[in-house]
């Protein structure tokens, strides 16, 4: 059992990991064909993962409803919506039928609801800015000033505040849009580049750990 549960997945990860790294750097037709075949295999795995996801979602929410846990009404909403969208898709076609029921539900229910939820962030950001964006330390004060300049420099009313400063002079550097460009192109680029190098090295080390079987958390069990 240990062999099936632990050794086989580690072996598959090792062989496929090494194979895909080699495939990327070999420009022959055979290598390209192998890559295309692997693309199809990836899609098949995605399809099974989707099935597991749906099963897990239904299981989770039916449990909540059965136990009448706090907020179980939302679980009803999830299940009813899922069934309704599935039926609409099966009867009238999916997004390929722009006149069908599924597309209507997508356009007039899903899009406005998802967009609304995301847009509500604006209100939370406003209250968070009022309560939490405090100049407690010199670093926080610098961040605050940079944020204020960038916020003004990215909207027309901000640029209008300083558009009386003539371009082509030294003082033009104080125009909002020019200060914003400087912030984005110099300190911001330097900071993000450093973060990206760190992330890149992290991805390489994690990938190597998975390929060589050191990192096994993807198999579950917490080890």
């Amino acid at each position: 059992m240990q062999f099936l549960k632990r050794n086989i997945p580690v072996l598959i990860a090792f062989v496929m990991g090494i194979a895909m790294v080699c495939q990327y750097y070999i420009p022959s037709q055979a290598s390209q064909d192998f890559g295309s075949d692997m693309n199809i295999w990836t899609e098949i795995i995605f399809a099974f993962a989707l099935l597991i996801g749906v099963q897990s979602l239904i299981h989770n929410h039916t449990n909540k409803i059965r136990r009448k846990q706090v907020g179980y009404g939302f679980s009803w909403a999830v299940i009813i919506s899922m069934i309704a969208m599935t039926i609409a898709g099966l009867i009238g076609g999916g997004v390929d039928n722009t006149k069908g029921m599924y597309f209507w539900m997508f356009q007039y229910l899903q899009v406005p609801m998802q967009a609304t939820v995301f847009s509500i962030l604006c209100f939370y950001i406003a209250t968070a800015a009022y309560r939490a964006f405090r100049a407690k330390t010199p670093e926080a004060t610098m961040l605050l000033i940079a944020a204020a300049i960038a916020m003004l420099g990215r909207v027309p009313v901000g640029t209008e505040l300083t558009d009386w400063i003539p371009l082509g002079t030294f003082w033009a550097n104080l125009r909002m849009e020019i200060m914003t460009d400087w912030l984005l192109n110099i300190p911001n680029t330097a900071g993000f580049r450093a973060v990206m190098f760190g992330v890149g090295l992290g991805i390489i080390s994690t990938s190597l750990r998975i390929i060589f079987g050191i990192e096994r958390t993807y198999m579950g069990g917490g080890d």
């Binding site: 406003a126 405090r134 916020m151």
Partner: peptide
């Protein structure tokens, strides 16, 4: 939409200033 965004940004700045004065 830029007019709305302009006014929201100005409001955010006013709120940040008020929050800091309060702090």
């Amino acid at each position: 939409g830029m007019v709305s965004q302009s006014w929201v940004h100005i409001l955010l700045l006013v709120l940040i200033i008020l929050g800091n004065i309060s702090f």
